[in-house]
Each structure stands twice: as structure tokens, then as C-alpha cells.
């Protein structure tokens, strides 16, 4: 048991949450962080989906890592990810149709998420399945929290709602408060992601 949660394995899980965050430090997965964060709910759904898929594909690649021919390894990784995503999306469609409608476009976006390929190439190809699973979950969650922060800010100021519920008190709107239409635009998420990276790096300056 102690081996399962050794310092190294714990680091594989917790580093991507903070010190080696996929978005803030590795700057991966920015494209989807821009696309799905205009509201909180899709951001959460996307974050969880990426976590699940990264974890599973990390394990699979890690299991077959020694057999993969070096020259086509990227293709093999891509095939594994695409197959996994397709199967998951088919299962969702058959058994939880509502969720699959919710996810519609994001399922395709998961395949193109750079974090997946990045982790497969950088971690799963060299490590055993268990640390790879932890690394996958850690990176997925590290990605998810940044998405949720950006989604939170954009939905709050862009629509005045959170998860679809109105949260701006009426007296503020009576005083002339209006929602900021800029927040709804994709460009704004780039600026917010930039601010998150800035804040994150200045907080962690000492520790590095």
C-alpha cells in the first residue's frame, strides 16, 4: 500500500494540480479552455470528461508502451484516444442520452485536446500504469479547475448568472449595473486565462 502512494506517485497526482499545471505552466489545452468557458456548466462537464479520458488513455498507453513502435507512436496514441472517446460517446448516447446531448461538441474537442497527447507522450510512454493513472487524473483536474475559474468569471460578469441561476441582486441592476458583453466573447477568455497564469506564477515564484 505504501508503495502505491509513494512520494513519487503523490507528486504525479498533485504536481499538475498546481506547480506543473497543464494550462498555467505547460500552457497546453488552451484552445478548449477558450471555447467552452463562456458558462460554468460546460466548463465543468468538459473538465470532468477530459479527466476521465486522460486517465484511461494514460493507463492504456502505459500498458502497451513497450510494444509501441517508436516511429508511429503518435499515431498509436491518437488511435487510442479517438477510439476511447468514440466508445464513451456511443455508450453515453445509448444509456444517458441527456448527457450526450449536453456534451455534443465537446466530445470531439476532447480528441484534439493537447493535454491528452502531451501526457501520453511525456508520461505514459515512460511510466507504469498506476502512476500514469494518477498523472492522468491529476492533469485532468488541474485543467478542470482553471476552466472552472474562467467559466465562473465569464458567466458571472457576462450573463449575471451561475450555472444558469441569476445571482446578481436586483438592486444592483436598478442602480444601473449591466452585464459585460465583452466577457461573452472568446477573446475575453484568453485575457482571463492570461490573468490566471499571471496570478498563478506570481504566487508560486518563491517555491520554484
Amino acid at each position: 500500500m505504501s508503495k502505491l502512494f509513494s512520494e513519487e506517485n503523490k507528486a504525479a497526482f498533485s504536481n499538475p494540480l498546481n506547480l506543473n499545471n497543464p494550462i498555467a505552466i505547460q500552457v497546453l489545452g488552451i484552445c478548449s479552455a477558450l471555447a467552452v468557458t463562456s458558462q460554468l456548466k460546460p466548463a465543468i462537464v468538459m473538465g470532468l470528461s477530459v479527466t476521465v479520458i486522460t486517465a484511461f488513455s494514460n493507463v492504456i498507453i502505459s500498458l502497451i508502451r513497450k510494444s509501441i513502435p517508436n516511429r508511429i507512436r503518435i499515431i498509436v496514441q491518437l488511435v487510442v484516444v479517438a477510439t476511447l472517446v468514440t466508445i464513451v460517446s456511443q455508450l453515453l448516447k445509448a444509456y444517458v442520452y441527456d448527457v450526450s446531448v449536453q456534451l455534443s461538441v465537446y466530445v470531439g474537442l476532447i480528441i484534439t485536446n493537447c493535454i491528452l497527447m502531451g501526457r501520453l507522450e511525456a508520461f505514459a510512454m515512460q511510466n507504469k500504469p498506476w502512476p500514469s493513472l494518477l498523472d492522468g487524473i491529476g492533469n485532468g483536474l488541474g485543467y478542470a479547475w482553471v476552466l472552472i475559474v474562467v467559466g465562473f468569471v465569464r458567466e458571472l460578469f457576462g450573463f449575471g448568472t451561475l450555472l444558469g441561476y441569476n445571482v446578481i441582486p436586483k438592486f444592483l441592476t436598478d442602480w444601473g449595473y449591466t452585464n459585460n458583453g465583452m466577457m461573452v466573447m472568446p477573446a475575453m477568455s484568453l485575457i482571463i486565462v492570461g490573468c490566471v497564469i499571471w496570478a498563478h506564477r506570481s504566487i508560486n515564484k518563491e517555491e520554484k
Binding site: S67, I68, P69, R71, I72, V76
Partner: peptide, 13 residues
């Protein structure tokens, strides 16, 4: 197995 050989790569794919 030589995982870098052409035959292996081809069969694997």
C-alpha cells in the same frame, strides 16, 4: 522483438 523494424511497425499498425 525489434520494435523499430519496418516489418514490426507495419504489422503493428
Amino acid at each position: 522483438l525489434n520494435t523499430n523494424s519496418n516489418v514490426y511497425t507495419f504489422v503493428y499498425a
